[in-house]
């Protein structure tokens, strides 16, 4: 039982670390603010959540302590990360950071130019 739970904990922590690493690679490789935000707000969220879940299970299964603060941390990260991603990209758009030059479509720009001309 202890061996199986150690295996699960190890898997979760490793998965979280790898996802965070890939998010970091994505932030370097992707071309503009918005696509970088995709990588940062998604992969980093699941990465942090799986590391915290591994920590929680480690304490629960091996030391038999249920640490509810870790669970609260998971919930807070889960709720706030997408909002943070949304706010950063919205602020970037409103201050006029350009899209990548290979971007295909921009419906918001039409609306914005209409609002200015009015």
């Amino acid at each position: 039982m202890i061996e199986i739970s150690k295996f699960i904990v190890g898997y979760l922590v490793l998965q979280g670390a790898i996802l965070s690493l890939i998010a970091a690679i994505g932030v370097i490789r992707l071309p503009d603010v918005y696509t970088r935000n995709h990588a940062a707000s998604k992969s980093a969220t699941l990465g942090v959540i799986s590391i915290l879940l591994g920590l929680f299970l480690h304490y629960l299964l091996i030391d038999h302590i249920a640490n509810s603060r870790v669970l609260l941390g998971i919930i807070f990260v889960f709720i706030t990360a997408p909002v943070a991603g949304h706010l950063i990209s919205r602020a970037a758009y409103n201050t006029g950071v350009p899209l990548w030059n290979k971007s295909v479509q921009d419906d918001l720009a039409k609306v914005r130019s209409k609002q200015k001309s009015r």
Binding site: L19, G26, L30, K42, L46, Q105, D106
Partner: peptide, 20 residues
Amino acid sequence: NISVLKVILSPKLEPRPGIF
């Protein structure tokens, strides 16, 4: 996460981003 992984780790970086 899986789909972002695919985009980031693909050797040729060719996403076609846009706003709809």
